[in-house]
Structure formats: structure tokens, C-alpha cells
Amino acid sequence: MAKHRGKQSMEFERSIAIVSASATVGTKEGEGPLREYFDVILTDNLCGQESWEKAESKIASDNLKLCINKAGLKPEDISYVVTGDLLNQCCGSTFGVRSLKIPFFGVFGACSTMGEAMGLSSVLIESGGAKYVLCGASSHFASAEKQFRFPMDLGTQRTPTATWTVTGDGAVLLAEKDEGPYIRRITTGKIMDMGITDANNMGAAMAPAAADAIYQHLSDFNFKPDHYDVIATGDLGYVGRELLIELLKNKGIDISKNHIDCGIEIFDRELQDTHSGGSGCACSAVTFSGMLYNKLRHKKIDRLLFVPTGALMSPTSVQQGESIAGIAHCVGIEN
């Protein structure tokens, strides 16, 4: 059975392996620096559907099926599917997994959803009550803009701190197996709110949560930051990364050497004009399922701390003047 460690962490006994991973991305991501790592790059972000929301579900559905296929399995072999997205009531996932006929746990952690899904899926495997668990997260630039900001065709400028929601879906399939990489441990984050109200500065809203989760993870397991080859946060972007490094330095931890941020990796800031970087559930999900999983498999990375970060808010809460709360979940993955 899993062991409770320190304040917020859990260590697994079983060998919870990531047996397959798949990443589908939109056109803009497909032109970015990580393009060679993605399984599918869309040529049409509407995916032949009639709305952005339906397109997001279609992307999720196809990518989840791809992930199952890559493991040589069929949907009926899967015990549970654990996914989430940014749309109201998690509709992107609901209609994405509808045709799969797999028992479904819908999760919401904003852009940290991939971490939450991987953590909970690991717990399901560890419990012995599930054989194969599929987890994933999706987002779509246009559906997110429509829900959280303005209509597509409204002529507005983006601020330098704004991030670009990634279009795509990342999925991984977990099972107890003797071939790594394995999910060894997780740290579930607390909600951290430092009073940021600017919805165009998500990195600043999430950095304290990432700093807290990483700090907690390292102290719960008594690790030094260099225990991990790479510490990959979700979508802090350039602004959030700077704040994260500074916040952790303040606690005596230096991760500036082995830290990367998926939101920085996925786009070329200059060429693609993405300002502070990428964001959205799919940002960390596709970067993990694409690049990071590939590097783990090829032993270019042996120990990875994956820390998806989320900004918790709704258009209503922002309009009512609520601040934007942050959350981050750590998933420790090793070969």
C-alpha cells in the first residue's frame, strides 16, 4: 500500500508504469519547437466540427483512443478514464470520452488537471482496484478565449504578461508493469492565493502554488533539488518562472539549473508572438506526453518532477472581483 509521507505526499509501492502516451496538438503548436515530439498535428483546429467546443471534444476523443492503441489495447481493457479540461462543467472531457464506454472520473484543476489526473490514477492503480487507467487533459485556444476572455474576432491587444492557451490533448496510460518510467510519488498541492486579480497574468497567480508544492515535495521526501534531473512546471511562462525561482530562493532552494516550464518550451516567443508563453490544460499535458515522456523512455531524463500548475477562477469570480487562486501538483517520475 501507498505510504503517507510528510505533510502532503504519498509514496507508491507498486511499479506504476506509464505504458503509453500520446499527444495531439493544433496548428500553432505544430509549428513550435516541440513539433517533432507530437503524435498528431492538426491541419484544421476546428477538426471538421461545427464549434470550438465540439472540436476540443473530438481532439480529446481521438487522442485518448490513440493512447490506448499505442499500448496495443482496446477501450474495453481500460478500467477507468480520468480526464479534465477548462470548459464549463468539464464538457470537453464529457463529450470526449462519451464514445469510449469506459468508467469515467471527471477532474478539474484548471491547467494543473494533468497532474491531478496522473496523481489520482496512480492511486487507483496502487489500490489494486484498477488494471489500466487512462488519464489526460485537453484545452483549445478558441474555446478558452470565448469562455474566459473575448470573442475571437474582437480586435484587442494582448498584454506582455498574457499567455496563449494551447490547443490539444495529452494522454497517458498507467498500469502496473516492469518497464518504466514509473510514477513513484506525488505531492498534492494546496490552494495558494496571493491576491493576484489580473486575469492576463496567470503566471504570477500560479507561481506561489508551484513554489509551495515543490518546496513541500522536497521537504516531505527530504530531497535536494538536484535529486531530479528536470523539474518541469506546467504553464508559468516567463513571468511565472522568474517569480518561482525567486520564491524558492527565498526558502533556500535553487532550482534555476534544472527547472523548465512547459509553457516556455512549447512556443517560440519571438517567432510565434505568444508573449509570456503557453498555458491551458493541454500545455503541460502535451509537453509531457510528447517531449518529456519521450526523453524518459530514451533515458535522456531519468528523474523528472512534473508539476502542472493551475489558475483557479471562473469568468464570474473574476467579474465579482475575486482574486485568482493557484494550485500545483507534483508527480515524481523515475526510470
Binding site: Q157, T159, P160, T161, M194, G195, I196, N201, A204, P208, V239, E242, L243, E246, L247, N250
Partner: peptide, 18 residues
Amino acid sequence: ITKEQYSDMVKKASPDSP
């Protein structure tokens, strides 16, 4: 770090609009 201190850090880290 307090909210006020953090707010200053954020201001420093966030680039201004050109």
C-alpha cells in the same frame, strides 16, 4: 512572503506594455 511583498515582486517581474 506577504501579499504586499509578492505584489511588488510581480510588478518587477512583469514586463510593461510597450
